[in-house]
Design a protein around this nucleic acid. Structure first.
Length: 111
DNA sequence: ATAATGACTTTCA
DNA sequence: TTGAAAGCCATTA
C-alpha cells in the first residue's frame, strides 16, 4: 500500500496559525509571537512568518494585521511592506512613516 | 543525517 | 534610541 496519501497533515499547524490570524479583529494588530502563542505553538514566531509568506494573493487571511514584536512592520523584499501599511491605514490603524505602530492602542488583546 | 534559511525575538553595546 | 549578535525552530536543500 502507498503511504503517500496518509500524510499526517503537515498543514495542521499552519491551519491553526491561519485561523488565529483570521481571528484578529479589524483595526487591531498582533505580533508574530502572539499569533504563534494563541495558536498553541509557543516559540514558533518564524513559522507564522513562513505561513503568511506562503499565502497566495487571493487569500482572505488578514496577514496585514501581523507585525513584529516592537510593533513594527517586518521588512521584506517586494511591495508587501507598503501594501501592509496602506491596508492598516485603511482600517484606521495609525502607522508612522517608518512603519511603527502603537501596540498599547492598536494591539490585539484576545480574551 | 547535516547544513542553510527565514514576514521572528530578546539581549547587549 | 539604534543597530548588531545570538537564540530559536520548522522547513528545504
Amino acid at each position: 500500500m502507498l503511504k503517500a496519501m496518509e500524510q499526517p497533515r503537515p498543514d495542521a499547524k499552519l491551519e491553526r496559525i491561519l485561523a488565529t490570524v483570521d481571528s484578529i479583529p479589524p483595526g487591531r494588530v498582533a505580533t508574530y509571537g502572539q499569533v504563534a502563542l494563541e495558536a498553541g505553538l509557543p516559540r514558533r514566531a518564524r513559522l507564522v512568518g513562513s505561513a503568511l509568506a506562503n499565502l497566495g494573493q487571493g487569500s482572505e487571511i488578514p496577514w496585514h494585521r501581523v507585525v513584529g514584536s516592537p510593533g513594527r512592520i517586518s521588512p521584506r523584499p517586494g511591495p508587501g511592506v507598503h501594501r501592509q501599511r496602506q491596508r492598516l491605514l485603511a482600517e484606521g490603524v495609525e502607522v508612522s512613516a517608518t512603519g511603527k505602530i502603537d501596540l498599547e492602542r492598536f494591539g490585539w488583546r484576545p480574551g
